[in-house]
């Protein structure tokens, strides 16, 4: 009995690498998308602003689960209809991991957009004016002036998005990706002990959350060094 529980627990926790890989890959996609869309929203180009606003409005207005079903089922169905219409004999299908990364990246990209946009707006104008006055190139201005402050200002929101993202990965078990949640479901059904194994899965996510909170608190302290020295 305990041997069986231990064996299933090991398989569940082994899938932790899949969950974390999915979460980190989605975070990277979300950060890139969010940064791009944040600059688009603040840019002078009206078309870019409209596209970015439409993106965040639509994605944040639909539940994660529905976005995932749209990307995993509806998008290939639409593409296949077009392919059929063109008379090509082929079928499009996304592997669950790709659909998962695309879904979570797209959703959290929209949340990151708002986080980065607010952070960019909160960088004092004088800083940028001073950088221009010093004759910094745009590239140096971004790396030396904007980025360090952006990281500090965006860190609380970024942390929050990461925590929500890590938990949202559990949804991908519903389209068959073998993550922690999927394995927990398998173990629950095989043994008739659903409470035990879902509790173990819950423990895994709680561990990731608490670990991230501690790590990001340390990181926040690192990026607030300059701020604290300047405070009266």
């Amino acid at each position: 009995m305990t041997g069986m529980v231990a064996a299933f627990t090991a398989t569940i926790l082994a899938a932790g690498s899949t969950t974390l890989l999915l979460a980190v890959a989605s975070l990277v996609v979300a950060t890139i998308l969010g940064m791009g869309a944040a600059f688009a929203k603040l840019s002078g180009n009206r078309l870019l602003r409209t596209i970015a606003s439409a993106y965040t409005f639509v994605v944040r207005g639909i539940p994660d689960l529905v976005v995932m079903l749209l990307i995993y089922y509806s998008l290939p169905a639409l593409l296949n209809q077009w392919i059929d219409a063109m008379g090509i004999d082929a079928r499009v299908e996304f592997p669950p991991i790709v659909a998962g990364i695309a879904t979570l990246g797209l959703i959290f990209g929209a949340y990151m957009t708002e986080t980065f946009k607010t952070a960019l707006q909160n960088i004092p104008k004088g800083q940028i004016e001073a950088a221009i006055a010093y004759g910094l190139t745009r590239r140096r201005m971004f790396v030396c002036i904007i980025l360090p402050q952006l990281i500090r200002l965006a860190l609380p929101g970024f942390t929050n998005n990461w925590l929500v993202l890590a938990k949202a990965t559990a949804l991908v078990s519903l389209i068959g990706l073998q993550d922690v949640m999927f394995r927990a479901k398998g173990a629950a059904e095989a043994t008739g002990m659903p409470f035990t194994f879902y509790l173990i899965a819950a423990g895994f996510y709680l561990f990731v959350t608490v670990f991230s909170l501690i790590l990001l608190a340390l990181l926040a302290r690192r990026f607030e060094i300059g701020l604290r020295e300047l405070a009266p």
Binding site: A188, G192, P194, A202, Y205, L206
Partner: peptide
């Protein structure tokens, strides 16, 4: 902390499928 630190899906399955274990 426990309810914000774990996915809602896990909580739902714990209650809906899990409680039958006892």
């Amino acid at each position: 902390l426990v309810f914000r630190g774990t996915p809602l899906l896990v909580q739902l399955f714990l209650v809906y499928f899990g409680l039958a274990q006892f």
